[in-house]
Computed example of a mutant assay.
Amino acid sequence: MASTEGLQAYEEENLLLSLPKEKDWIAQHLYLFQDFWYPSNFIEGVINFQKHFQAKDSDVIVATVPKSGTTWLKALTFAILNRQRFSSSHNHPLLTSNSHELVPPLELIFHVDNIQDKLSDLSNITEPRVFGTHVPFPSLPKSIKESNCKIVYICRNPFDTIVSLWIFANKNNPLNELTIEETLEKYCKGIVGFGPTWEHMLGYWKESIANPNKVLFLKYEELKEDINFYVKRVAEFLDCPFTEEEESNGVIENIINLCSFEKMKNLEVNKSGTVGRKYEKKYFFRKGEVGDWVNYFSPAMIEKLSKTMEEKLSGSGLSFKTSP
């Protein structure tokens, strides 16, 4: 009789064989699963995450579109939640660990063989537990949707996101032969990791309107414009608002400085090593600017993406600022 793990591996292998797939420019392939495209090196973790993760009411989930400020929002959320535990900026975990290590992606956590051991590890983490995910809202486990855990979501204007995706792919996969025009084409069609990005953004956007105590929807450009306001907004949303004493003592400014792009990029811990055995830490920090896309887009590309955005986001109320 086949073991449970062996049977599960057999079922997942057969599931993959039945799914539509496309060549990816970072992973080997993308698989269309539950109406979204998942990288081949994440799909097993996504399935296990859905099956086995049990959310606690105190959990915080940092959900993001890839290449939209994930590293920054993870750092900010971790620092806000743990400001009592790590009040001194001299020995803060963010100085010695990458934010993806401190706020690990659930689809990566569950990309393991021994699920029971992993579940035991997760149950012993100090609360509030904070995790990351790129999984779209419709595909989140029931326990996340039905518990009182909170979701902080961030996305970025598609112009800058496409440039960031393309450069990140080239750095992580030197064999990538896609031009930026071809990358734009795939992005518009929705054939990108954890995409279509339009449906990804709209899923969390609609939920943030329907259930504002559950999902806080942020835009990268707005964080850049008024980081002080949004750090306070995140803290309020997570039910740990800053006190007047904290504000007067510069706690907010300390968190902003600790998590700043320049600070994190120049830390030794972020200059070498990998996240998840594949992605080099140094490649998570490029420019962090709004509007850098103007150096890469042709007029035809601008027209194509503008028309696609208008078509996909029409009537939703979701819009983006594309320049500083």
Rank of each mutant, 00 (worst) to 15 (best):
L7T: 13
L15F: 12
K21Y: 13
I26P: 01
Q34H: 06
D35V: 00
N48H: 12
H52L: 04
A55K: 00
D59H: 01
P66H: 09
P66G: 07
S68G: 14
A75Q: 10
I80R: 03
R83P: 13
H90D: 13
P93N: 12
L94Q: 09
L95M: 10
L106W: 04
E107H: 11
D113S: 10
N114E: 11
I115A: 01
K118I: 07
N124R: 07
E127L: 00
V130P: 00
F131P: 03
H134D: 04
P138N: 05
P138G: 01
P141D: 00
N148Y: 04
K150S: 11
N157Y: 13
D160E: 13
D160W: 10
T161H: 08
I162A: 06
S164E: 15
L165C: 13
W166E: 12
I167M: 12
A169C: 15
N170C: 14
N172T: 14
N172R: 11
N173A: 14
N176H: 13
E177H: 13
I180D: 04
Y187Q: 01
C188S: 07
C188W: 00
G190P: 09
G190K: 05
G190W: 08
I191Y: 05
G193K: 03
P196S: 06
M201I: 05
L202F: 00
E207L: 02
L216D: 10
Y220L: 03
E222K: 04
E225N: 13
D226A: 07
V231Y: 03
K232D: 15
R233N: 13
V234Q: 01
C240P: 09
E247V: 11
G250E: 13
G250I: 11
V251H: 06
I256C: 13
F261Y: 14
K265A: 10
N270I: 03
K271E: 09
G273W: 06
E280D: 08
K282G: 04
F297S: 01
P299M: 02
A300R: 08
M301H: 03
M301P: 01
E303T: 06
E310T: 11
S316R: 09
S316G: 12
S316Q: 13
L318W: 11
